[in-house]
């Protein structure tokens, strides 16, 4: 059994290769983009009529509200990045309901890529909001002694993001594979349902953590301090 879909290589030319991770990612992207285009096109033209359109609105509204509640001042600015994290991870996990489908989030390369994206996005957003000096001051907060710890924290949390998501997704797939080999009937179905819920929870955790990192980085020190302090 393969631990990661990266090892399933479908095509290779020099350093370029097409593996199962990239292929399933493209598949997920395709479904998401075409679905969004198809349903939102009707939303734009008139009132919401079908359940899917309402569902899309609920999802987007949910993400928007979460961003707001986490403390981000302009949710519409971050919803593209953070919302896509949630939708991509969640949808990738939900598609495991299709037999033979291996989620791209079950690859450490994918989760690392997403973690790297967060790792890069956080300082970019912070610089955009507070400037380079303002961003760098965060590393000295609360004292300059904390500089190395803050730098280490940035790397470790990125690593933790990647490994947490990979571990949970991969473990789910592995557990189901093992259970199927032991008890091929009925029992794997319940585990599969549990795995679907887990994948949504993982998507939520990844997104909330990313939001918290962005919010923490973009907030000024004055905002962090309580009033009158």
């Amino acid at each position: 059994m393969d631990i990661t879909p990266d090892s399933i290589i479908l095509w290779k030319y020099g350093v370029f290769k097409l593996n199962a991770t990239i292929l399933t990612t493209w598949l997920v992207m395709l479904v998401l983009v075409i679905g969004s285009y198809f349903f939102t096109r009707r939303i734009v033209k008139g009132k919401i009529s079908s359940g899917v359109e309402t569902l899309l609105e609920i999802i987007v509204g949910f993400i928007y509200k979460n961003l707001q509640e986490t403390g981000l001042q302009k949710p519409e600015k971050y919803i593209g990045f953070i919302g896509t994290l949630f939708i991509f991870i969640g949808f990738s996990g939900l598609l495991t309901i299709i037999p033979g489908y291996i989620p791209p989030t079950g690859s450490l390369s994918t989760t690392a890529a997403l973690a790297i994206c967060v790792f890069i996005a956080v300082p970019l957003y912070a610089i955009q909001e507070k400037g380079v000096i303002g961003f760098l001051k965060n590393y000295l907060h609360p004292f300059f002694i904390f500089l190395p710890f803050n730098i280490i924290a940035d790397f470790t949390r990125t690593l933790a993001l990647a490994i947490r998501l990979f571990g949970n997704t991969m473990s789910g797939t592995l557990i189901i594979g093992i259970i199927i080999s032991i008890s091929p009937l009925i029992f794997p179905v319940f585990l599969h349902v549990l795995d679907l819920i887990t994948s949504l929870v993982q998507a939520y955790i990844f997104t909330v953590l990313a939001t918290v990192y962005v919010a923490a980085a973009t907030r000024t020190i004055e905002e962090v301090k309580p009033k009158g302090a």
């Binding site: 593996n19 450490l108 390369s109 994918t110 890529a113 990979f166």
Partner: peptide, 8 residues
């Protein structure tokens, strides 16, 4: 476990 091309 990490394929850097895939990551990119």
């Amino acid at each position: 476990l990490i394929d850097w091309f895939t990551v990119f």
